[in-house]
Amino acid sequence: MSKRVDAVDLNVYYGDFLAVEGINISIDARAVTAFIGPSGCGKTTFLRSLNRMHEVLPGARVKGQLLLDGEDIYDPGVDPVTVRTQVGMVFQRPNPFPTMTIRENVLAGYKLNGARLSKSQSEEIVETSLRSANLWNEVKDRLDRPGSGLSGGQQQRLCIARTIAVKPDVILMDEPCSALDPISTLAIEDLIGELQQDYTVIIVTHNMQQAARVSQKTAFFNIAGTGKPGKLIEYNDTTAIFNTPQEKSTEDYVSGRFG
């Protein structure tokens, strides 16, 4: 559990359009890494290339290497489906399966793997996953109600529970709080702090305070202009990025002078 992620000269394309260029980055296991940068700078695109969700779009492809504990996930012999069972993802908007109950949502990943669970096993998985997502106390009496009946923040925590239920090595979060109110946001941020003990967490956020609060390391992405590829500008300890940035553009961004 919990693997490190290394990108080596990674280019990400949409058809012929180069969206992200020349990424070299080493992301630590059991830590929270934040991606920040202005809109359209390629941070979400790069994040989606980490579990091969990028290539779901027609024409989207990747060049370069992406190593999960040294193994290239873009090796021709690798099935993207396998990658995605090891690298989980939480999306910008909460997306529990609307036709499933809360319980079924948590167990959805197991159902996919074809695992045969006894009743007690599945009860245990549901409870531990919901407890780890800080949702158990709120939903334990209505596990058979639809997941879509929960509030936005609860739905997002349900999605996190669904993701950690299958025990991935890495959890990707694409602006997980952008659709949530401040109190739900706080609940998710607390949760991210706890997840870091067991998982490699990578989070894209537009909220710089959030990056400062939850992450140990921060990567700043930027683009030179519209139609140009996004690049990794600076990657360092979060305190260093926010207090003593090395690059001028990083300093401008974190001090709120642009973006």
Binding site: T82, R84, T85, G88, F91, N95, P96, G109, V166
Partner: peptide, 13 residues
């Protein structure tokens, strides 16, 4: 919704 399709894909479907 793309969101629901991606939810399944991201779980390894």
């Amino acid at each position: 919704p793309k969101l629901h399709e991606e939810a399944a894909l991201a779980l390894g479907a």
